[in-house]
Amino acid sequence: MTTYESNDRFTPITQTATTYPVLLIDTQAPLPELHACVSERLHATLDYLTLMACTTLRDSASTDLNTVTNVARILVQDVTDLFAVIERRGLED
């Protein structure tokens, strides 16, 4: 079994599907790059949820609502993790 050794440069994105961190945030990436990444995810989430709010779910399968919710949860979790790195960097300066 492989163990994960913490590294100050990379922080894992919160995940629920795996026990080993596979997606990492480069905590030393330039702030404009981190901001662009978080902005992209936040806007995509807002656009996605706006689309879902305007969609009729009459013809959907029983699992569709769970899928929609899970996609939004993953994107919002990514945004939260990225904001945490940006906030830590902002407080260090």
Rank of each mutant, 00 (worst) to 15 (best):
A17C: 11
T3L: 10
P21S: 13
D47L: 04
I25F: 07
P32H: 02
G90P: 04
R58W: 02
R73D: 14
E33N: 09
D81C: 04
T18S: 10
L31N: 10
I13H: 04
Y48T: 15
E5I: 13
D59V: 15
N66P: 02
I25G: 04
Y20N: 09
E87W: 00
M1W: 07
L46N: 07
E40P: 00
A53E: 05
L65Y: 12
N70F: 13
C37Y: 03
D81W: 01
T80W: 00
P32D: 06
I86H: 01
R89W: 00
A53H: 05
T56Q: 05
P32F: 06
Y20E: 11
T45L: 14
Y20M: 13
L57W: 02
P12H: 00
D8K: 14
T18N: 06
L23K: 09
L42Q: 14
S6D: 03
L51V: 12
C37F: 07
P32L: 07
L75M: 15
D59N: 12
T11S: 11
D59Y: 10
V79T: 15
V68H: 05
L42F: 09
L23Q: 05
A53N: 12
N70P: 06
Q28Y: 00
V38M: 12
G90A: 08
D64L: 12
E33Q: 11
N7C: 05
E92N: 08
M1L: 13
A72C: 10
